[in-house]
Design a protein around this nucleic acid. Structure first.
Lengths: 383, 383
DNA sequence: CGCTGGCATGAATCAGGCG
DNA sequence: GCGCCTGATTCATGCCAGC
C-alpha cells in the first residue's frame, strides 16, 4: 500500500500510513484494497464517507440497441461476485471497516441500484448504522430500456445514515439547503443529468476512463448537505475521483482509496486541475422544459377523466373513446392521443392535448385544460 | 379464518377456503393471518401480488418482544438486531407463502420506505424472486420534516419482481404505458399526490380509517402496467382495500387478506360502491409482438410476390432474388429474409421485413407492406 | 459564423414461439 | 426442456461534419 500525494497539497511525506494521525492522509489517494486501507487509518477520524461500491450487476450476454449497436456494459472484473452471499460478505467487511474510522457524529452515504442497494441497506442496519434518509437521484437523461420489457431505469438510490441510532450531532445544513431550494425544504428526490460531455474523463483513445463516473453536481449537493468547510470526506471506492474533485472545490479535505493505478492517475490529474471556487455547481437543475411533461394516463389515474369518456375535435368531426390504459380508440384501432389525432386527420403529427376535447356543461374544452390542473399539483413537487 | 364475500359478487358460499380452486376466493376478503391464509390458497393461482406490508416494529403484534422488556442504551444495538431479525423472519414467511400461490409467470409488487424496504428487497432476492425494477413513488404533497434534521421524505419505494430469474413471460403492457406517456417509455419514477380529500376513508368521527391508505392512482398504474383484464390480483395486507377498489374498477379480480374486522368492513363498503369500467374501454394497446406471425412464403403462395422478383435494401446497396421456396438468393447463397439481411450487412441479426424492399410504380416499399396486406386478409377471414 | 442533421452513447440483471 | 429461428426494440444529449 502506498500513499499518492497531490503536489499542490503536499505535506510532510509519510512512509506508511500511521494510525496515530489522519493529517498525513488528507487530500491523498491511498492505493490498495479498501478494507486493508481503512484498517490502517485511525478510528473516529473522518466526518463523512461517500461510497460508490460495485453494483454486482450480474449481466449475462450482450445487449444491442435497436440500431444494432452494442451497449458498452459494465463488465469489469471488480463488479464480479459469485453470489449474493459473497457480495454480502464484501459489503459487511468494508462497512465495518468504514464505521471504525467514522467519527461518532459522522455520516455515511452509499449509492447503488436495485441490484445491490437492498443488500447494502440491510447490512447498514445490521451493523448498527441508523438510516436518516434514502435519497433518489432522478436522471434527466437515463439510458432507455431497449427491449421494452421493463420500465426505463431512470434513477439510482443513495442511503444516508449516521454511525449510531443515537447520534444527534451529525451535520445537516438544513437552512442552507432550504435557501438554495426556493425556500422549500430539500426533498429526498433529486434531479440531475448523468455525467457526460466535457466533465466525463476520457483517455487518449477517447474512451471513458471509468464506466460509472458520477456527476459533480450530485456530489456537490451531498457535501453541501452533510459537511462543513474543512471536514474530512473519505471515499473508499475513489474511481475517477469525483468525490475528491468536489471536496477540493468546496473547501473540504478528501481521502481516497483505490486499487487501480489507471483510475488513480486520472483522478490525480483531474483534482490537480480543480480550482476551489464558488458553489455554483449546487444550482438546482430546473429542467430544460418550461412546463413539466404530463402523461395522459395521469388524467385517468387521478380520476380527472374516466375510461369510456368520448372525446372529439373542436368541430366534432371525429370521436374517440378514452381507454383505461391511456390510449384512444377509434373504430377498433388504439393509439396515443397524439398518434390518434394525427391518424384521423391523415397527418404525420398532431398535438393531442389541444386537438381532443371533452364536454362539460354542454361546452367543449380541450383536454389541455385538465393537463393544466395536473400541473398545478405537480408544481408543488418541483417536478 | 373466514371468507368475507361482497354481496354484489356473491357465489356459492364456502365454509372454508379450499385448496382445490381459486374461484371461490375471487373478489373476496379473507379474514385472518396472512401466512395462514396464503397457505390455504392453491399454488400457482395468482397473476399479481401487491403488498403493502407493515414496517413499524413496535406497533405490530407479531413483532413484539415476548417480555415487553425495556432495554437501556447499551443494549440498543442488540435490540435493533433482534427487531430486524424478527422482521426478516416475518418478511421471509409471508414472501415464501406468497411465492407459492404466484403463477410461474406472475409478478409481485412490494411497497415500503427506508425503514423496511431494504429488508424486503434482500429477502426477495434470497428467496429466488428476480427484481425487474424498483419504482419510486414521488409524492407531490409529502409531509414536511418538522425537526429540520433530515431531508423531506418525499417518496416511497416499490419493488417489482418476477417469481423466478428465468421467467420471461410476465405481463408488462409496454405499448400501452408508452402510448399513455406522451409516446415515451414509462420511467421508474412516478409522481402522484398522497391520498387525501374525498378519496381518503374516514370513520364516523371523521378520523382516517387506515393510517397508510394508498392513492388509487398509484394502484391504477401498477395494475395497468402488469396485469390484463380478468387477471387475479392478491393483496395480503388488504387494509382499506385500495387494491380491491382499483382492481374492480379496471376489470381485474382481487383477493384480499386482512386481520382487522374494522378494515374489512370499511373495504367492503368501499368496493361495493365502485363502478366497474366498461369492458370495451379496458382493451389494452397491443404492440407488434401481438400481431400474428406471417411466413414469408405466404406472400408467394398468395401471389403478392412472385419467384424471381428482385428485392433491395432502401438504398439499393444490395439486391436479392426471391426463390420459390421462400428464401432469398444473393450470389449463389440462399437464406431466410432475416438471415440474408444480416449477412449482406455483416450483422448478427436483421429484421428482413423492414430491411428488404420491392419496387412498385418506381417506388421502393418494404415487404412489411405486403405482410400488412396479408394480415388484413387474415383478420377479415377471422383467423 | 450559426444552424441543422447525423451519429455516438450512458451502472442494463432487456424475447418468444415452435418443433 | 432444449435448440433454432423469427423479428421486435431507444431517450436525451453532446459532438461533429456539412452547408
Amino acid at each position: 500500500m502506498s500513499v499518492v500525494r497531490l503536489a499542490s497539497t503536499a505535506r510532510a511525506a509519510a512512509k506508511s500510513v500511521q494510525s496515530s494521525s489522519i493529517d498525513a492522509c488528507l487530500d491523498t489517494i491511498i492505493k490498495g484494497d479498501c478494507v486493508a486501507a481503512l484498517e490502517r487509518l485511525p478510528e473516529k477520524s473522518v466526518d463523512v464517507i461517500f461510497a460508490d461500491p460495485p453494483y454486482n450487476l450480474q449481466l449475462d450476454g450482450d445487449l444491442h440497441r435497436p440500431d444494432h449497436s452494442k451497449v458498452d456494459a459494465v463488465d469489469d472484473h471488480w463488479d464480479q461476485f459469485d453470489s449474493f452471499a459473497a457480495y454480502d460478505a464484501f459489503t459487511r467487511a468494508w462497512l465495518l471497516a468504514a464505521r471504525r474510522v467514522l467519527k461518532p457524529n459522522g455520516t455515511i452515504w452509499v449509492i447503488g441500484s436495485y441490484h445491490n442497494i437492498f443488500r447494502v441497506g440491510t447490512s447498514l442496519q445490521d451493523l448498527g448504522f441508523w438510516i436518516l434518509n434514502d435519497v433518489i437521484w432522478r436522471k434527466t437523461n437515463p439510458m432507455p430500456n431497449f427491449r421494452g420489457r421493463r420500465f426505463q431505469n431512470a434513477h439510482e438510490t443513495m442511503i444516508w445514515a449516521s454511525r449510531d441510532q443515537n447520534a444527534k450531532g451529525y451535520t445537516f445544513n438544513y437552512e442552507a439547503l432550504k435557501a438554495a431550494n426556493e425556500d422549500l425544504q430539500m426533498r429526498s428526490d433529486w434531479l440531475f443529468p448523468i455525467c457526460t460531455g466535457s466533465e466525463r474523463l476520457k483517455d487518449e483513445n477517447g474512451d471513458k476512463v471509468h464506466p460509472t463516473q458520477k456527476p459533480e453536481a450530485l456530489l456537490a449537493r451531498v457535501l453541501m448537505a452533510s459537511t462543513k468547510p474543512g471536514d474530512v470526506v473519505l471515499d473508499p471506492f475513489f474511481g475517477s475521483g469525483t468525490t475528491g474533485a468536489v471536496a477540493k472545490r468546496l473547501g473540504r479535505h478528501f481521502i481516497g482509496i483505490e486499487r487501480e493505478q489507471a483510475y488513480i492517475d486520472a483522478a490525480m490529474a483531474r483534482i490537480e486541475a480543480v480550482e476551489p471556487a464558488d458553489a455554483k455547481t449546487l444550482k438546482i437543475v430546473a429542467g430544460k422544459r418550461a412546463e413539466p411533461r404530463v402523461a395522459f394516463a395521469v388524467l385517468l389515474e387521478t380520476g380527472l377523466l374516466k375510461p369510456g369518456t368520448l372525446l372529439t375535435d373542436a368541430k366534432r368531426r371525429w370521436t374517440a373513446t378514452v381507454q383505461a390504459d391511456g390510449s384512444l380508440a377509434v373504430g377498433g384501432e388504439q393509439a396515443s392521443i397524439h398518434r390518434m389525432g394525427a391518424r384521423v386527420q391523415g397527418l404525420d403529427a398532431c398535438n393531442g392535448w389541444t386537438f381532443w376535447h371533452y364536454e362539460e356543461d354542454g361546452e367543449l374544452k380541450p383536454i389541455d385544460t385538465l393537463r393544466a390542473e395536473v400541473r398545478k399539483q405537480m408544481a408543488a413537487a418541483g417536478a
